[in-house]
Design a protein around this nucleic acid. Structure first.
Length: 413
DNA sequence: AAATCATCCAACCGCACATGT
DNA sequence: AACATGTGCGGTTGGATGATT
């Protein structure tokens, strides 16, 4: 098909916007709305292409944009969502109010990615870089990982659909209010043919598809988790309680790998031994004090025994040998499937990055401070079940995060 | 003070997809 | 079915700015 570039007309200005141009664009949109972007420049008296106008508006002029430094919580959210979604900046942006996808993308590329790299974590996979030797060598491992990846894909697809829904709803509010109700209501376009399959492709939800996974599809994740909890190995059939009726969702093991689908997997392989990439495992970076503050204050050089990074990392690790006895390095993560968003945000992989310190009580708000930092002991109940709990909680934390900040307020867990 | 290097981020580009004709 | 158009997304670029030599 192809199409001609929108900006190939001669005489159209490119490059940085002047205050005058900004004013014109702002004034026009405030008065008329943007309408057709392609037609806008002429109407607004701008020598720009519509695409450029749209970009300027969405990334800079829009009144609901927050600028400036990212808060610690925002950083946490970005990392957690990136672990789940990969470079789906627009989807991530929907969970960071007032931040644009472009801004988040830039921030990731210029700050967060570097920090992770310096810490020896692959920013693409969110795994320690040297965990290759720990890659799934046993079948159960890969099976579990693929199940999880499948769930992540579905959640990712749901997020995208929700994000789009919100945008579409906003866009059409004025002229098509009924549409909004339709979309936000019980409409649950959930073609059975789209049910997760063994296909190695991502869920067939299109970028612009108004089809939306049922908002309650989040529950499928919960059910899946419970399925894993009971079964310990995989999910056979998950039942989704959709608004329009239940859907049997058969989800055989996917052969998909995240790398193939550009979805950065959260840590999924076997227990990971972190080997610090620097002399202290973490590298303090300019502007990144908060990240390592706790660690810097409390860590010792004894990475084996007292490095919270390692321990929390274990908590974030999906050990496919759940239930087996080989969990002496496991630890307890939060038991919370907490209802408090703040707690949710404090949990998970990101937490280790941001708050890595000996004080892990905050990770377990409901366990009386009995902490997560139990790796290497095994005398504290951090057996296989606990480890399974840890892993489940990691996913819960991410899914909760996603869910609590979900634009559609879909509830979960 | 000047030159060089590094970093940041606004903007551009190409592509994918939906929708309309 | 084929094509045109509109829109959004993610990757990349290049100018501005700051830091270092």
């Amino acid at each position: 098909m192809g199409r001609s570039p929108c900006c190939d007309k001669v005489g159209l200005k490119k490059g940085p916007w002047t205050p005058e141009e900004d004013q014109k664009l702002l004034a026009y949109i405030e008065e008329h709305g943007h309408g057709s972007w392609r037609a806008l420049p002429a109407k607004a008296g701008l020598q720009r292409c519509g695409k450029s106008c749209r970009l300027r508006w969405t990334n800079y002029l829009r009144p609901d944009i927050k600028r400036g430094k990212f808060s610690l919580q925002e950083e946490q959210t970005i990392i957690q969502l990136h672990a789940l979604l990969g470079n789906r900046w627009s989807a991530i942006a929907t969970h960071l109010p007032k931040r644009t996808d472009n801004e988040i993308k830039n921030y990731w590329n210029t700050h967060l990615k570097k920090r992770l790299t310096k810490m020896g974590i692959d920013p693409l996979t969110h795994k320690p870089k040297n965990d290759a030797l720990l890659s799934s060598t046993d079948q159960g491992n890969s099976k579990t990982a693929s199940n999880l990846s499948h769930m992540a894909q579905w959640e990712s697809a749901r997020l995208e659909a929700e994000a789009r829904l919100v945008r579409e709803s906003k866009r059409r509010t004025n002229s098509h209010s009924s549409l909004q109700n339709h979309h936000l209501g019980t409409c649950a376009h959930f073609p059975s043919s789209n049910a997760p399959s063994s296909s190695s492709s991502a869920p067939a939800l299109h970028k612009h598809d108004h089809a939306l996974l049922p908002s309650s599809s989040s529950h499928s994740l919960d059910h899946a988790m419970k399925g894993w909890n009971n079964d310990g190995t995989n999910v056979a059939i998950t039942r989704i309680s959709g608004g329009a009726g239940d859907i049997d969702l058969e989800s055989p093991t996917s052969t998909l790998s995240f790398s193939e689908n550009n979805i950065a997997p959260p840590i999924m392989n076997g227990v990971i031994e972190f080997v610090g990439s620097s002399e202290r495992g973490l590298v303090k970076e300019e502007g990144g004090q908060e990240w390592n503050k706790g660690y810097d204050q409390n860590s010792t050089h004894d990475l084996e025994n007292s490095m919270p990074f390692t321990s929390t990392l274990h908590a974030m690790t999906i050990d496919a040998t759940w239930g087996s006895a080989d969990h002496d390095q496991s630890l307890r993560a939060s038991k919370s499937t907490s209802s408090a968003h703040a707690h949710v945000i404090e949990q998970g992989f990101t937490n280790l990055l941001l708050n890595a310190s000996s004080d892990h009580r905050s990770l377990s708000p409901d366990d009386g401070g009995e902490s997560n930092n139990h790796h290497g002991s095994g005398d504290d109940g951090s057996n296989g079940n606990d480890f399974y709990e840890d892993n489940k909680n990691y996913w819960n934390s991410i899914f909760n995060l996603v869910n609590y900040s979900s634009p559609s307020d879909s509830s979960m867990f």
